[in-house]
Nucleic acid binder design. Structure first.
Lengths: 154, 154
DNA sequence: CCGAATAATGAAAGAATCTTCCATGACTGC
DNA sequence: GCAGTCATGGAAGATTCTTTCATTATTCGG
């Protein structure tokens, strides 16, 4: 990383992480280089995949997705086919923000956003426990979002 | 929500969620309105907080943060002071992406990004178990990121 | 159903920005 | 020291932003 990114690249990355809609002119000024140089640097950071995407982050509560739920999942069998089948199915569920295969007491951890508890209970009964190979789930309702999706520090 | 956002607003929000650096001209064309109207709509969506922020999402692996760990935390006491103290301390730890107070077997769930397991072990020993009021932690190393930080569907 | 008031729209235009070209300066390896 | 490579910033035409304004659509009381 340090081999590929100098101080200016890091500055651009951090600025864009804070405000992805900065104009090239503003970015250039804040980074301390000319607009032309800044444009080239930024383009490279995108092309080489340092920036995966630039995304507007919508306020969940404003679009009726104010409830957050963490769910631990245990599968019936720990076979590659079982995992693949589960992962294929979960990728289609739009309310799943995170799905991670983990080592420990669970097979998967899910992070789910829905409108409210009632909403979740319906989804849990109709969609989650119906996923292929699910033996049991453990639900952790989030009562307070202390830190949610903090920007990456580097 | 449906009362405040019409079809065009929703289109703009979804387009910006997919590509936060779309120019107003491109946005206007894709949304099917004039640049002037699109500009006003977009400005309103920002001003009224429908868009929390626009952020470049940096590829974790590219900046030596390729390892993801979920951690369940149990505190010694379940008092308001105990929670407040923990939350205040955790907000200062830059490697913590998520920290949520949950109902269930744990008090908090953490989502943490570090360089590798060794990195995590040092952090766990030096910083996590040293947090105020922590009785025990349970670590779930992420072996595969099936879905990470998916965009909100609405 | 009407009409007035309010709100939203798109064309237009000056200001700002983007994006590329190019000449210059800096660094590298021999 | 020197040739080759690379990064830099100025310049400028093309594009975009952002506001103004006249027009159209919508709302609401009567």
């Amino acid at each position: 990383m340090t081999a590929k990114l100098d101080r200016i690249d890091l500055k651009i990355l951090r600025l864009l992480q804070k405000n992805g809609r900065l104009s090239n002119a503003e970015l250039a000024e804040k980074a301390g280089v000319s607009p032309a140089t800044c444009h080239r640097r930024t383009q490279r950071l995108f092309e080489e995949g340092f920036v995966r995407e630039v995304r507007a982050i919508v306020t969940p509560r404003k679009v009726d997705k104010g409830a957050l739920v963490m769910v631990g999942v245990v599968l019936d069998r720990s076979t590659p086919e079982s995992f693949a089948s589960f992962e294929q199915a979960i990728a289609k569920l739009k309310f799943v923000l995170d799905c991670h295969l983990v080592a420990g007491d669970f097979d998967y951890f899910l992070k789910i956003r829905v409108g409210d508890m009632e909403d979740f209970n319906r989804i849990h009964g109709e969609q989650l426990i119906a996923l292929p190979g699910v033996r049991q789930t453990r639900t952790f309702f989030v009562m307070k979002e202390v830190v949610d999706n903090a920007p990456l520090e580097f």
